[in-house]
Simulated assay, not measured.
Amino acid sequence: MRAEVWAQDDVKRLHRIDVRTLPDDELDGLAVVVISRLLITGGNHHQLHEELTASGGYLKERGFKREPSVVLRS
């Protein structure tokens, strides 16, 4: 993944977008979830900290409604 961050646009092989579908009775509209990764390394490239965060919400006719309780599951 690290190499993909610095790769030129015409040679990127990794796309960070995924689309999933659910049955109609489980969700009544479009939803968006964003998962981000923060990685902090030291001068000698040792990992000092790593954190995953998630946020999301629903796309409505009048805009976006945030979901306050997005939970990451492994």
Rank of each mutant, 00 (worst) to 15 (best):
V5A: 02
G29M: 06
Q8S: 12
T41C: 14
S74A: 11
G63V: 00
E4P: 01
V19C: 11
L22S: 07
H45Y: 07
E26R: 15
H15P: 02
G56S: 04
N44R: 12
H49T: 05
N44E: 10
G57K: 05
R66K: 14
L14W: 04
L14Y: 07
Q8E: 15
D28Q: 14
P68D: 03
R62Y: 06
K60W: 00
L14N: 09
V33D: 01
L30G: 09
A3M: 07
A7E: 12
H49Y: 15
V70T: 11
K12P: 00
G43A: 12
K60M: 13
H15R: 13
G57Q: 02
V70W: 04
L52W: 13
V34P: 00
E4K: 02
I35Y: 00
F64E: 06
E4A: 09
R2C: 04
E61T: 11
G56R: 04
V71L: 10
V32S: 03
K65A: 15
F64A: 00
T53Q: 10
S69P: 03
E51Y: 09
D10R: 06
S74M: 08
R13Q: 02
V70K: 08
I17E: 13
L30Y: 11
L48V: 13
I40D: 10
Q8N: 11
L59Y: 06
L52Q: 09
R13E: 10
A31R: 05
K65E: 15
P23R: 12
E26Q: 14
A54R: 07
L52F: 12
S36W: 02
H15Y: 12
I17F: 05
G29R: 10
I35L: 08
E4S: 12
E51P: 01
R2T: 14
L72G: 00
S74C: 03
L22R: 07
D24P: 12
E61S: 14
R62D: 15
P23H: 08
G29W: 02
H49I: 08
R13G: 09
R16S: 13
L22E: 07
M1N: 08
G57S: 01
S74R: 06
T41D: 05
T53Y: 02
M1G: 05
D9A: 10
E61Q: 12
L72K: 01
I17A: 04
E51N: 09
Q47I: 11
D18L: 11
D28K: 12
P23S: 09
D25E: 15
H49E: 10
S69V: 04
Q47C: 09
L38M: 10
A3C: 01
L59E: 06
I40S: 05
D25H: 15
V5H: 06
R62C: 08
R62L: 04
T53D: 09
V32M: 05
V11D: 03
K60F: 04
L48G: 09
I17Y: 07
R37H: 13
L27N: 01
R13A: 07
P23Q: 14
F64T: 00
L39T: 14
L22I: 07
Q8H: 09
T41V: 14
I17H: 14
H46R: 11
G57H: 01
I35N: 06
H15G: 07
Q47H: 11
P68G: 02
